[in-house]
């Protein structure tokens, strides 16, 4: 039986109802997943390699369509909406910075797509993420930690309500990771974000997670 995780404290912001998904041509599946993440919560999702964590994030942000089930953002069913209509930020594991675009252009991308320009927001994000000195650099001129901060700033520039992070700290060394965890908590609090953070690391989960989830055999099995 699928388990539904509920917090009674606040209005739920993300709800997955009976989500199932099967990879084309593969046996790999997500089975009937139901899950609720309350507003302004830092949720951490753990699970073994290849258990479907990334696929679940991609379903939530709209890059994959589930075979079955619904995704609600607040009370709105967003299952059939395009990713751009969901206001869900996504930072993939490989960060996927836009090749050939300077950091400033990466940060301006979301605003540019809406035909807007907000220099103050970009400057503020650059200061928050400590990347002001990197604004004129290209992705290949950045270190792993710098790339990670740029990817976060780019996602935040779209002013999402929900942020999905796919193993964002996996490429960082121990000292940088501590720093990055503090930064993530600060950002989540400052921007009043609901975060779903995928990780293999128990220490990350313990440090960051207000809600800890585990995906096993295609199902959410424990908190």
């Amino acid at each position: 039986m699928p388990q539904e995780k509920k917090f009674n404290l606040t209005i739920p912001v993300i709800s997955l109802k009976n989500i199932s998904w099967k990879a084309p041509g593969e046996g790999f599946k997500l089975h009937d997943i139901s899950l609720t993440i309350p507003d302004n919560t830092y949720a951490v999702l753990m699970g073994s390699t290849g258990c479907g964590k990334t696929s679940l994030l991609e379903i939530v942000c709209g890059l994959r369509q589930p075979n079955q089930g619904q995704i609600f953002l607040d009370d709105r069913d967003v299952t059939l909406l395009e990713p751009r209509e969901r206001r869900i930020g996504y930072v993939p594991q490989d960060l996927a910075l836009f090749p050939g675009r300077r950091v400033k252009a990466q940060l301006s991308f979301a605003l540019q797509m809406r035909g807007l320009s907000d220099e103050t927001l970009i400057q503020q994000l650059a200061e928050d993420l400590r990347i002001t000195h990197l604004l004129e650099r290209l992705p290949e001129q950045l270190s792993g930690g710098e790339k990670q901060r740029v990817a976060l700033a780019r996602a935040l520039a779209a002013q999402p309500r929900v942020l999905l992070l796919d193993e964002p700290l996996s490429a960082l060394d121990e000292s940088t990771r501590e720093d990055a965890m503090t930064l993530l908590r600060t950002l989540q609090s400052k921007h009043a974000l609901t975060v779903l953070h995928v990780t293999h690391s128990s220490s990350e989960a313990n440090t960051l997670g207000q809600l800890r989830l585990r995906l096993d055999d295609g199902q959410i099995v424990s908190v």
């Binding site: 991609e58 942000c61 709209g62 890059l63 395009e82 990713p83 751009r84 969901r86 869900i88 930020g89 996504y90 993939p92 490989d94 996927a96 910075l97 836009f98 090749p99 991308f109 979301a110 797509m113 809406r114 780019r154 996602a155 520039a157 779209a158």
Partner: peptide, 13 residues
């Protein structure tokens, strides 16, 4: 294809 997918989540068609 990943950067193109991320662009979709950032508001791009």
């Amino acid at each position: 294809a990943r950067p193109e997918e991320v662009a979709l989540t950032l508001g791009a068609t």
